[in-house]
Design a protein around this nucleic acid. Structure first.
Lengths: 148, 148
DNA sequence: TCTTAATCCTATTAAATTGATAGGAATAAG
DNA sequence: CTTATTCCTATCAATTTAATAGGATTAAGA
């Protein structure tokens, strides 16, 4: 599941990706622009900074910006940082594997299935970066408009 | 996320798929065989029956069996019945779409992304049926054994 | 130096979801 | 009738989610 935390975090990153790379943005600016609770977003930005996606400057005239080019930020790693493993169940996770207490790892049918699901999810999220995500949306919205 | 409810439900269905189609199985039998809490499994079996996957007989010598051939039970529909929509976020669901209150449906970048994730998940889970799931596991376990 | 405005830090909390458990009613076989 | 099962309703504890509160720290600029 993508939680609000993950959703808000991605929106904030898209916001930053669409600015000049060096320009600092305020949490309050992002929050009001995207309808995100300010205090909640503050906490999320801290996580994103700790995960290496953002850099910040404190004090007056401070703010956040991307710590690296948007094209180098994989969506999968963002969601992992905010919401945890992409796998539907811990025993199918690569990044954070945890053995099931109640089933045998090798013979469990459900696990084999969920490994395939995890792979399918990763195939989408780990092959897209923030630059693609922020570029894409406007185009798709236009394509969907009916012809005049 | 696949909850314990979904996991237990799938395991119970696999158990039933490996029996003679008409033979009734007891909840207590399935529960002890697969390490599932009996009372919890009882509730899950009720859900699976209400969703049309199982039929039951009450009273002494009662029990559960598949309501239709295992090959006609799609894994995706089982998980939807037990754990809800497969989409990571309600605004990306086909089976149970719900509009986001805080973003614009057409221009939201996150939504377009999650539609692709949902499609990837459904491509795995809606193209597999219970017969395949119950047949597969044993083989894979063998393949993984090192050669003597 | 002082004011102001921002990030940063710690703690708390309310609501929802998950993962069960308890106790017994209804049903049917033998 | 006894026994064994599904079925039904209610309850509950733990965890996760989604925030909010209050202030400490930092730095720009007057």
């Amino acid at each position: 599941m993508l939680t609000n935390k993950g959703k808000y975090g991605l929106k904030a990153l898209v916001f930053l990706a669409r600015r000049e790379p060096e320009e600092l943005a305020l949490v309050s600016e992002i929050a009001s622009s995207r309808g995100i609770p300010r205090k909640f977003l503050e906490a999320i930005m801290t996580d994103l900074r700790n995960a290496g996606f953002l850099s910040s400057r404190k004090g007056k005239a401070g703010g956040y910006r991307l710590a690296k080019p948007a094209s180098e930020i994989r969506i999968g790693s963002v969601i992992r940082a905010l919401d945890g493993p992409l796998a539907p169940i811990p025993c199918a996770s690569k990044s954070n594997y945890q053995r099931c207490e109640d089933c045998d790892e090798e013979s469990c049918e459900v696990r084999w299935l969920m490994v395939d699901v995890r792979q399918a999810i990763c195939d989408v999220l780990d092959t897209r970066n923030l630059a693609e995500l922020s570029a894409q949306a406007g185009l798709l919205a236009l394509i969907d408009e009916p012809c005049p």
